[in-house]
Amino acid sequence: MHSFGYRLNGLLTFSLTILAMMCAIASLSDNLNTPSPSAEIQIMNINWFQKQPQGNDEVSLTMNISADLQSLFTWNTKQLFIFVSAEYETPKNSLNQVSLWDAIIPAKEHAKFWIHTSNKYRFVDQGNNLRGKEFNLTLHWHVMPKTGKMFADKIVLTGYSFPEEYR
């Protein structure tokens, strides 16, 4: 009844159960955090704006992004993945989301930042609908935990528009 194998098995089962419970509690404790993030994005310049030979509009722009995401960090947060996407509607598509810039924030100290950048990924429309188009810039964040459930949310910034003519 009390052989070595039994004891080993019991010990292993017990420690794994405790570990699993601790992981679950750590993940649940994330719900206690009520974050209050803030963000601001300015478009400083439209670098160029043209129609590709294939017929799709492509634009290059320079942005000023500033945000304070420190309140998103908890003890169970491994990192934040953040990105800015342009979101707009066209006659063909009910939603277009194009990621323009992204970053990984590894620690709370880096979560209050300011950056001046042009778009990291190509901003290409499906079609040529961008002239004079109004669009939103959305700052999304995905909280990647040390263990457990992943969280995501966003701040939508409205009122941006493209020039009426290619340049």
Partner: peptide, 21 residues
């Protein structure tokens, strides 16, 4: 991770582009 989404107005079908972080 998904970096681009284009969702059709009529059928609701999506075009998705992904990228590894």
């Amino acid at each position: 991770r998904v970096i681009k989404v284009h969702e059709r107005q009529d059928s609701g079908e999506v075009d998705v582009l992904t990228k590894g972080d």
